Every structure is written in C-alpha cells, then in structure tokens.
Simulated assay, not measured.
Amino acid sequence: MPVTHTPVHSKVVSVVTPVHGEAVRFLPSAYASLDTQRLPEGWSWEWCVQEDGPGVHAAAHLPDDDPRIRISTARHGGPHVARTLAFARSTGRYVKNLDADDQLTPGVLARDIAVLEEQPEIGWTTSRVSDLLEDGSTVSFELSDPLPGPLARGGAFPFWDEHHRPPVHPATLCVRRDLLALLGGWMALPASGDTGLLLGLDALADGWFHGETGLLYRKHGAQITAHPHHTAGPEWQARMSLIREHALALQDWAGVRGPAMDA
C-alpha cells in the first residue's frame, strides 16, 4: 500500500490536541478559545484532535459543521504519542500545541505567526501561562519566566538540569513544521514528552518568549501531572535520565554544548 504524503499549506497553523476519556468534557472550552482567535489576513487554523484510544467520542462534544476540526482515533499510546499522530495528520506550516483541558488566550496564534514569519532564525515560540483553577479563577506564576523576546539556543537546558523543570512552559509551544519533523514529534514517554521536545528544540534553534499570557492551564485532579509518579520514583528517574541524554546528544550533534554543560 503506497504512503500518502500530506500536503503542507503555507498559511495554516495546525493546532494539535490529544484527548482521552477524562478530558473530553473540556473540549468545548478549548474549541471556544480557538474559535475566537483572530489571525493575520490570509491565514487559517486547523484543529487536529487525536483520540487516545477507543471510546473517547470527541465528536459528541464539538460542532459538526466546522470543517477546520479534524478528529481521528488510534490505539492508546499516551498523550505524547497522540500529539505526534495528530502532527502526522496536520497540514500547517506551523504546529501549535493545545491540550484538551487548556484554553488559548486571545491573540496568541497571531503573535506566534508574527514572530515565526518575521524572524526566520526563530524555530519555536512559547508564552506566559496562568493556572485555571476549578472555581474558574486564574493564578499567574512568573517566578522563572525569562524576559520577553529571543531565547538563545541552548539556554533552556541549564535551568532544566538544575531544577528538573524548564524555564518556559512546553504546553505553549508553537513550532516550525520542519523542525518538529526533524525531532520526530514529541518524546514517547508517559509524561514529560513535551519537556523532552522543548529541550530538543532548544538544542537546535533559537526560541522566543511572549510576555503576554498565551495559555490558561487547567488544574484538576485527573490531569497527568497530578499522578504521584509524575515527580518522584523509578519512572520519574527514567524519564529525566532519557530527557537529559536526548538533549545532550542533540547539543553535541548541533555543536552548542559548552563546558558548563559537560558535568
């Protein structure tokens, strides 16, 4: 059976969203935050929703008359495998992450597009995040945010290596398609695959940080980051070890690893 190659559209930003049964109820809010985005003239978005396993029924929670929504199902592989499968179905020049339980803030897609269009040396963008609490209120955290503007290649790794969390939030990534393809999408881990991708991008290209809040990050008991294995134990150790090895190998390959990173 021949492989069909998906055409790439130069003025489309592809938003990829993995969804499982616990998070499907949040899809209407995610869609509303996407539907209200205002893009530069001539640009459009597509939403590649990837059901992580059978029985999710995402279509029951979304409009059936919006051709920009593209839903697909595959066997269960976890959120980062689902993101990568959504990327495989996408057609956009730029690829934006949006988790099913999160919400974009107004203007974020236009800001991402503007930076990537005007500055070809920038490979990826991130933005400030506010937590969205269960009562609907939001809390902003800016303790580790860098200054708005360019992020030098290799600059995110030392912070992550010291704190085991990146200085910017990987849930806000918008990436050039060819760069994401070069890295093979998200790391196939049960969690932290987006951090692995961020550190891979950091090794290969300069990034950009938007000082405006670009994402409302929903906090709830069913999210992966609430699992007890997320921040401790053998699984955490294995994830951190592989992410570090992956990032350092890419830094060596790209020639950006300095003496401070050799420890």
Rank of each mutant, 00 (worst) to 15 (best):
P54W: 11
V56N: 12
H57Q: 10
H57V: 10
A58Q: 10
A59C: 13
A59W: 06
A60E: 08
H61N: 14
L62W: 06
L62S: 05
P63D: 14
D64H: 15
D65W: 08
D65C: 10
P67M: 14
R68N: 09
I69W: 08
R70S: 09
R70L: 06
I71P: 05
S72A: 15
A74S: 14
H76K: 12
G77I: 05
G77N: 06
G77P: 02
G78Y: 11
G78P: 05
H80P: 00
A82T: 01
A82C: 07
R83Y: 13
T84R: 10
T84E: 08
T84D: 15
L85R: 08
A86E: 12
A88D: 15
A88L: 09
S90A: 12
S90K: 09
T91Q: 07
T91W: 03
T91L: 02
G92Q: 05
Y94G: 04
K96I: 08
K96E: 14
D99A: 15
D99P: 01
D101P: 05
D102C: 10
D102Y: 05
Q103C: 10
T105C: 13
T105R: 08
G107W: 04
L109D: 13
A110I: 04
R111A: 09
R111P: 01
R111H: 02
D112H: 06
I113D: 08
I113A: 06
A114M: 01
V115C: 05
V115E: 11
V115S: 07
L116F: 04
L116H: 00
E117N: 01
E117K: 02
E117D: 05
Q119N: 09
P120Q: 01
P120K: 01
E121Q: 01
I122Q: 07
I122N: 08
W124H: 03
T125L: 06
T125Q: 04
S127P: 01
R128N: 09
V129K: 00
V129G: 00
D131F: 09
D135N: 07
S137N: 05
S137C: 02
T138M: 12
V139K: 12
S140V: 03
L143S: 07
S144C: 04
D145H: 01
D145Q: 01
P146R: 02
L147N: 01
L147S: 03
L147F: 02
P148H: 00
P148V: 03
G149S: 04
G149P: 00
P150Q: 15
G154N: 02
G155H: 10
G155C: 11
G155I: 12
F159H: 15
F159C: 15
E162T: 12
H163N: 13
H164W: 12
H164N: 15
